[in-house]
Design a protein around this nucleic acid. Sequence first.
DNA 1: AAACATTGCAACCGCTCTAAT
DNA 2: CATTAGAGCGGTTGCAATGTT
Length: 258
Amino acid sequence: MGRQPCCDKLGVKKGPWTAEEDKKLINFILTNGQCCWRAVPKLAGLLRCGKSCRLRWTNYLRPDLKRGLLNDAEEQLVIDLHARLGNRWSKIAARLPGRTDNEIKNHWNTHIKKKLIKMGIDPVTHEPLHKQASQGSSPPTNLPQSEDQQFELPESDDRIGKEENLSPQENCSSSELSFVDNSSNDDPLMNCLLGENVSSLIDASWKFPSAEDDYNNVVGSTWEESCAWLLDYQEFGFEEFGLGCMESMGPMDWSDKH
DNA sequence: AAACATTGCAACCGCTCTAAT
DNA sequence: CATTAGAGCGGTTGCAATGTT
C-alpha cells in the first residue's frame, strides 16, 4: 500500500526530550486534551513527530503515572500475567495502575528475566530450564499452554479486546483467582516464588477491584500515592511546567501539592 | 585515574489493528 | 469490499550512568 510516514522526517527532532518540550506538550494536552496526535506537534509548537509526542505523554508525562521501580507485588503480578498473556505488555500494563507497557517491558527485560533465569526458570515459557533441556526442543509456542486454552475463551484474538470490558473479577475468575487457590501447585514458577513467602503479596495484588473502581485501590491505595509523579515535578520544578492550569482538572487542590 | 564492560531506561522503528470513507 | 490514515503495540537501539579491572 505504501503508507505515508507518520510524520515528515525532515525537520523532525529526535532523541531525548528537553524540559521545554515537555512543558509545551503538557500544556497543550492539559489545555486541549488528547486529540489527533498527528496534529499535536504542530499545534503545540513542537518539532516532533506526533508518534513521539504520544509516546512521551503516555510513557512519561501522563499525570496518573507512578514512578520508580516496581514493588514486589507489582513484579509478582507481572510475572504471572506474563505467564498467561505472553509479551502483551500493554495488556499487562493495563492491570498495573500507573505503569506503562514500556516500563514493564523494560523491567521485564532488565530485572525479571534475569531473576527467573537465576531461579532456573525459562522466562519465555515459565517452565523449569532443566525440564526443557531434557525435553529437547520444546518451542516457545507451547507456552502458556496456548493462552487460549488457558482462558478457554471461544474467540482467540477477539478476547484481547473484549477482556478489558470485563470487570477484573469476571475477567480473572477462571484463571487468575484460581491461581491463588490451587493452580500454583502445577506452576513451577509459582511453586518457587511461593516458597519465598510471597503469598501475602499475591493476596494483595490479586484482589482486583470492580470495573467501577480504579486500580489505584489495589496498588496505589490513595490518590495521592498514585500521583506521586507530582512530587517528581516538584523536584523538576513545578512552575517550569506551567501546571497551574491543572487546577481545573479535578477536585484536588493543586496548589497544596506545591 | 583511565579504560573498558555492563546495565538500565528512554526513545525510535516498523508492523498490525481499526475506524472512516 | 477495498483503500487509506491514524493510533497503538512490541521489538530493538542508543546512550548515559554505573561498575569493574
